[in-house]
C-alpha cells in the first residue's frame, strides 16, 4: 500500500513539473511576443547554427527562384529569374517568400535599368512588408524621377492595404540626378523605428515610423522603368565574424 502511495505521489510530481514547463514556455513565448521578437526568427537562427553556418553573419534571406509577388488591383506582375540575375517589369514587385523579421539590412546590387517611358522612372526596396488580403502593407524606399522637368527625389513611404500613404515619411530632392545608365546599388538598414537608406554605400536618407514592426523585404520598379539586378539579400544588423 505504501508503495502505491509513493507511485501516486511520484506521478503527481511529474504532472506538476510538466505544468511548470508548460507555464515557463508560455510565459517565455508571451514575453518574446511583447518584445517584438519572432519565435520563428529564433528557430531559424538556431537551425542555421546547427547546420554549421555562422548564424550571426549568414544572410537571413536571399533572392531565389521564388518570389512572393504583389497581386492586387495595381501591380502588373512579379519578379522573374533570368541568367545572372532577376528582371522586374514596369510596375512590378515581389517579396522574399517565407521571410519575416524586425531588424535587418537589405542590399540590392548589380542594378541596371531601362526606362521604358519618359515619365515615372524609378525603383526601390520594400521592407517590413507583407502582401495582405487587400494589398501591400509595409514600407518602401524609392528613387523616382517623375519627368525630365522634375528633380529626382528619394523617399520613404508607408503602404496600407495596397495604397501609398501621403505625405511620405521622409522625402528629399537630389541636387544632382543619379546616373540612370549606371544606377546606384541600394541598401536600407531597418533598426527599431528608424530606417536609413544608402546609395552606393553613402547614407542618403533617414526616416522613422512605428506602424509596422516586422515583415519581409523585396524589390519593385516604378511604372516607367524595367529593372534588372544581380542579387538581393537581407542581412542581420550585428554581424561579428568568428575568428
Amino acid at each position: 500500500m505504501e508503495r502505491t502511495v509513493r507511485q501516486f505521489q511520484k506521478g503527481q510530481g511529474l504532472a506538476e513539473y510538466a505544468l511548470l514547463l508548460v507555464l515557463i514556455a508560455l510565459a517565455a513565448g508571451l514575453a518574446l511576443n511583447m518584445a517584438g521578437v519572432s519565435i520563428q526568427e529564433i528557430y531559424n537562427r538556431v537551425v542555421t547554427g546547427l547546420r554549421g553556418e555562422d548564424a550571426a553573419c549568414s544572410p537571413l534571406a536571399r533572392a531565389g527562384s521564388e518570389w512572393d509577388s504583389s497581386k492586387d488591383k495595381f501591380w502588373k506582375g512579379g519578379i522573374a529569374q533570368q541568367p545572372g540575375g532577376y528582371k522586374v517589369c514596369p510596375l512590378c514587385g515581389g517579396l522574399l517568400p517565407g521571410f519575416s523579421d524586425s531588424d535587418y539590412q537589405v542590399d540590392l546590387s548589380g542594378v541596371q535599368v531601362t526606362n521604358t517611358s519618359p515619365t515615372w522612372n524609378g525603383y526601390g526596396i520594400t521592407f517590413r512588408a507583407e502582401n495582405g488580403a487587400k494589398g501591400l502593407n509595409g514600407y518602401m524606399f524609392e528613387v523616382e524621377k517623375v519627368n525630365k522637368n522634375n528633380p529626382t527625389r528619394i523617399y520613404f513611404s508607408k503602404w496600407v492595404n495596397g495604397v501609398q500613404i501621403k505625405p511620405p515619411i521622409k522625402m528629399i530632392s537630389l541636387s544632382s540626378d543619379i546616373d540612370w545608365n549606371n544606377p546606384p546599388d541600394m541598401s536600407v538598414k531597418v533598426e527599431g523605428n528608424t530606417f536609413t537608406a544608402y546609395m552606393d554605400g553613402q547614407q542618403v536618407l533617414q526616416g522613422s515610423d512605428d506602424t509596422y514592426a516586422t515583415g519581409s523585404a523585396g524589390v519593385f520598379s516604378n511604372a516607367g522603368t524595367e529593372l534588372i539586378f544581380s542579387d538581393f539579400m537581407a542581412d542581420p544588423l550585428h554581424c561579428e565574424e568568428v575568428k
Binding site: K73, F74, W120, E144, A223
Partner: peptide, 8 residues
C-alpha cells in the same frame, strides 16, 4: 507613379 494606374 502609383496613382497614375487608373485600375485602382
Amino acid at each position: 507613379g502609383w496613382s497614375q494606374s487608373g485600375e485602382g
